[in-house]
Design a protein around this nucleic acid. Structure first.
Lengths: 151, 151
DNA sequence: AGGCAGTAGTTCAGATTTGAACCAGCACTC
DNA sequence: GAGTGCTGGTTCAAATCTGAACTACTGCCT
């Protein structure tokens, strides 16, 4: 415990920049989605993931892992989206205890309506401010961390 | 609204990687801090910022901006840290409405005790997985976004 | 001085998140 | 085919976050 490998200037700057930026961006996205459609960011992510999935449906646990929220948070959010008519629950045919979240037609339309504004923000603040090279470098770096954190 | 500039493969991959990674890392850090000292990540950040500040003290608003939380969240967290004896509140001498959050000696000791483990995680999952070049590239990219988001 | 817009913090209500406890169904063993 | 351990989701209580009032003080402007 005595020989801690502290972060040097460069490393600390990198960490702080990463941390602040991710929080600031999260905030901005949340604000935009709330204003545009009354959605939270996790809710949007759920819709987006489902839209990409085969048959527009996914298992709860799989979805939770993709969106990176706890199982209980997902249960809650799917409940909200269900109330809003954007998602439906079905019991999984192959596994009786499983639940499939299915994107409804209303959900598809909602996503189509909201996506442009959302992408706009992601682009304006993050993507379009990087060169192609930076983009690829960052992705590579993020992927390494992501992989490590997913075990 | 018809001509949305969607994200191409590379851009989408970058965005997804960034998003997932930041959430996963946040989760891991939160878990580590909770286990090691019963602190939340924002709480740790408050202590760390104060430790770096002249006289180990900072104005509430300034601190809130640094840590990237709402003013009310900071009020709450400072309350918690105060209960734990790690921080104290002082009224600002130059501005009667202002409040200074001051790190106590106990706060310093707590930070000294917790910091190594925290840095360890940041290093193990993020910093040490990047080359120096990647580190610098990422920092540059993050800084651009950060600056844009801070107006 | 007196008034007034703006800033600093707090309070408050409402929404969301998390981990732990829990129930049910699957899968494997003996 | 009963027993056992695991996995999938939900429920629950507690903690935290946010934005919207609200109060108090500052700094100008006249």
């Amino acid at each position: 415990m005595t020989d801690t490998a502290w972060l040097d200037e460069t490393e600390m700057a990198a960490w702080r920049a990463f941390l602040s930026t991710s929080h600031l961006l999260e905030r901005r996205i949340e604000e935009q989605l709330k204003a545009a459609a009354g959605l939270t960011h996790p809710q949007y992510e759920v819709l987006a993931r489902l839209a990409d999935a085969p048959d527009r449906q996914m298992r709860m646990t799989e979805l939770a892992k993709g969106v990176v929220v706890s199982k209980s948070a997902l249960t809650y959010q799917i409940g909200q989206l269900e109330k809003a008519g954007l998602v439906e629950r079905t019991t999984c045919p192959s596994d009786e205890r499983g639940v499939l979240a299915v994107l409804t037609d209303a959900g598809v339309r909602c996503l189509e309506r909201v996506a442009p504004g959302h992408v706009e923000v992601v682009r304006a603040y993050l993507i379009d401010r990087m060169t192609r090279g930076e983009l690829e470098t960052m992705t590579a770096a993020m992927r390494k961390t992501e992989q490590a954190l997913r075990q």
